[in-house]
Design a protein around this nucleic acid. Structure first.
Length: 507
RNA sequence: GCGCCGCUAGCUCAAUUGGCAGAGCAUCCGGCUCUUAACCGGCAGGUUCUAGGUUCGAGUCCUAGGCGGCGCACCA
């Protein structure tokens, strides 16, 4: 076309002289021109006969120059355009799959010729025509008709991709459009979630939904977000864990339950921490933590096989195998080994344990008991070194207020964490089922809370009342789903595993 | 919250010691019937994150702030 008036209406030209404003204004002018020509730039419905993937699948390897005689209607976002005079090549992208449109002008009907003039990379487009392979062998559709499905006003980043992390996180729609790697990760994530859900269901667990608004935050050691219900005039907390409600369901006679959902913790952000994250929690009547280890291992393996088709992973350039069986080792034994103190025990004098911390440059506090001191040694010296999957067993009672005391070891609980690549992926225990022991432990937590520990739990009377109804032996599990996605997708930053990570508002 | 680093055209990036803000691609205009990051020619496009300061002169130096990344702390 010949257009001697690139700026169609100087009176309405934007005062903002930036290139972006100019591009948007130009595209708005195209929208106007299309409307004047009777074309709806934002139509209500379209029916493709084939996805781009289906066209590709049906004609993979079609010989150069072949015309199939098959007529299809396809759709996608226009991501490429090459004009060669009376011949134009367009590239559509749909669900991660590209397909070329081979458009000699003489093959197009009159409306399509006019539309082609107003078409920009970024627009949504439908096309109907014959499937063929060009002389150079590129599988293509040669459309007779083109249908504008949604005009884009903003330019798409091209070629160099989109590298600016801030734009990738804030405008994920752009990231997904131009970065194949973003599409890879966010296609993998739902496969992981589906695998977890299917494996739980296959094992007889029932999926439930418990409140996100909690009157009393509990079930984990974390600071909650506070909100307020106007009609009730009550402060409520976004849940830090579904744990206590799920255990109340066990008390209510539901033998195997799980919840896959979001929890919220009002704490710092980091490449491994988003303020809201997805957790899988499950509770199984009659099971102990050995049973839960078996379940945990199976869940990770199922997720890896379903999402990747293998148990042999590469994470950040280093191999890690989920083949199992995962190593099982007591926390105390790990600390004994790391400190070179083979006789270390929880009943050692506190001064000796503090001295041990000093010797290993582990910060500690005078009000910590033996359990907390040993835990700190473990976290500072050992945890980050555990690359291959490792069940770390038997956490101190003092740091495990919801876990059952060990059946034979007095100072610890039947609790484990699963560590992979030096990070915690799961936390689980033989659940505490003795209501009087639980009350005592929560009262200790409440005392710590009163003394200023914002992460300590409060006494939750409705929960204790449920326990007093009677609980069977119960095995409980929590799995960090985002971390699992990070591991399987091989991304280092949790913001690359969460579609819309928490960021400060744009200013 | 603390420390370090970054922020320049729509995108990706340059800019020497403090000395005229540039390139490629995209946009816009022209050409081209087998391109693949098409190609060829041309025009245009800037609050150098923001506000101050130093200086004859600031993208560059100083102060404060914003946003992001990383580390620490906290945690899964």
């Amino acid at each position: 076309m010949t257009d001697d008036h690139p700026d169609p209406d100087p009176d309405t030209a934007p005062e903002d002289a930036s290139k972006l404003a100019e591009i948007v204004a130009t595209r708005r002018a195209k929208v106007e021109r299309l409307r004047e020509a009777g074309v709806d730039p934002y139509p209500v419905r379209f029916r493709p006969t084939h996805s781009l993937a289906a066209v590709r699948a049906a004609h993979e390897g079609l010989a150069a120059g072949t015309e199939t005689g098959e007529h299809v209607t396809v759709a996608g976002r226009l991501v490429g355009r090459r004009d060669l005079g009376r011949l134009t090549f367009l590239v559509l992208l749909e669900d991660g799959v590209e397909l070329q449109l081979f458009c000699p002008v003489k093959a197009l009907d009159e409306p399509a010729r006019e539309l082609l003039e107003q078409l920009d990379v970024g627009d949504w487009l439908g096309a109907s025509g014959e499937v063929l392979a060009t002389k150079t062998g590129e599988l293509s559709v040669r459309p007779g008709q083109l249908t504008l499905l949604g005009k884009g006003l903003r330019p798409l980043p091209k070629w160099h991709g989109l590298a600016d992390t801030e734009i990738r996180f804030r405008q994920r729609e752009l990231d997904l459009t131009v970065n194949e790697d973003a599409r890879r990760v966010f296609a993998l994530r739902p496969r992981v979630v589906a695998a977890l859900r299917e494996e739980m269901t296959r094992r007889g667990f029932v999926e439930v939904e418990t409140p996100i608004l909690h009157p009393i935050p509990g079930g984990a050691a974390a600071k909650p977000f506070v909100t307020h219900h106007n009609a009730l005039d009550e402060d409520l907390y976004l849940r830090i864990a579904p744990e206590l409600y799920l255990k109340r369901l066990i008390a209510g006679g539901m033998p195997r339950v799980f919840e896959l959902g979001r929890v919220f913790r009002n704490e710092g952000v980091s490449p491994r921490h988003n303020p809201e994250f997805t957790i899988l929690e499950s509770y199984a009547a009659y099971d102990d933590y050995h049973d839960v280890m078996e379940l945990t291992e199976a869940l990770l393996q199922r997720a890896a096989v379903d999402a990747l088709g293998t148990l042999e992973l590469s994470y950040q350039g280093r191999e890690v195998s989920l083949a199992g069986p995962f190593r099982r080792v007591a926390l105390l034994d790990l600390v004994r080994e790391a400190t070179g103190e083979p006789d270390l025990a929880y009943d050692h004098h506190l001064d000796d344990l503090r001295a041990l911390c000093e010797r290993h440059d582990v910060a500690h506090s005078d009000d910590w008991g033996a359990g907390k001191l040993v835990l700190e040694l473990y976290e500072a010296l050992v945890e980050h070194t555990l690359w291959e999957p490792t069940f770390v067993l038997d956490y101190p009672v003092e740091v495990s207020p919801l876990a059952r005391r060990h059946r034979s070891e007095p100072h610890v609980t039947e609790r484990f964490e699963l560590i992979v690549t030096g990070r915690e992926f799961a936390n689980a225990f033989s659940e505490l089922t003795d209501p009087d022991d639980q009350r005592q432990r929560l009262e200790q937590q409440a005392a710590a809370r009163a003394a200023g520990d914002e992460e300590a739990m409060a006494v939750d009377e409705p929960y204790l009342r449920a326990m007093e109804l009677g609980l069977p032996p119960t095995g409980g599990l929590g799995v960090g789903v985002d971390r699992l996605v990070m591991l399987l997708a091989d991304v280092a930053n949790i913001r690359d595993a969460v579609l819309f990570p928490t960021l400060r508002p744009e200013r």
